[in-house]
Amino acid sequence: MSGLLIEQSTPLIQLQDGGRFGVRHLGVSQGGAADWLSMYWANWLLGNALDAAVIEITLGGLGVLIQQDGCLALAGADLAATLDGQALEPWQSFTVRAGQRLRFSHPQQGLRAYLAAPGGFACTPTLGSCSTVSREGLGGLHGEGQALVSGDTLQWPGTAEPRQLPRELIPDLSLKQPLDLVLGAQIGDFSGQSLFDLFNRPWQLDSRADRMGIRLLGPALEYQGAALISEGIPLGAIQVPPDGQPIVLLNDRQTIGGYPRVGALTPEALARLAQAQTGDCVRFRPVLEQQAQARHLQILAGF
């Protein structure tokens, strides 16, 4: 059994995995890694199940003391990581030795980095998942929804060899291309001008953003339909509250809600959005359900 000790952490540094499923009808949030693509690649680099438990590091502020020799993997954002002061690039697995210190300071590119260990970080699942959902007190290392804190010890069961992800396999998580939005829900009840604005204007990420949702700033969208009765809300749904400023709902969103929605982002678009920072601008591109499914299956086939 190998291990590491958390020496410095923040509430945004949490154990995550693929998410909590089969319990949403009980009001339990989905949870899971916000950038699932980077989590998958971090696990892939070690030969793990792609949704094995990883550490999601948002913004930086993690300090770790390695306690035993082993191999870890890093994918996603460049948070200026260092291993004993030496720069450590994402998209690779790397050897660690007992006594070394791994640090993540601040975003150079992207927002969320994923640290994986061979066989996945050991954690007893809560309701089928290790995903930390603080608001619900579920998941995480101790099962009570806490983020990782200084003094926590993490272990892993496997071994692996260092390797790099070939450059052509590194996913494009930039915002250069528009984000794919599956049209649906109440989109037919928004004004024509709002539909034009939705797909032709840039939308700026507000500072009001967390794992439940990200608020977007732009022209107010006008819903013209009747008031809704609360209904299930899917991952990536873009809901429009009465102030007209859309909110993209993420992994820790509530399970049901009553605001009208224009559809939902695709999984790939969500991974890219999860790497965007406050003040960044995104654009949307409409896609149909079956196009989105074909693209998603193509991505999954790449692992």
Partner: peptide, 22 residues
């Protein structure tokens, strides 16, 4: 079936696209 969420008048059905097509 991944999740099925009943609410008042609706059921939201979340399914696994690797097993079932649209």
């Amino acid at each position: 079936l991944i999740d099925l969420v009943p609410s008042y008048t609706t059921l939201m059905l979340h399914y696994d696209v690797q097993r079932i097509g649209a």
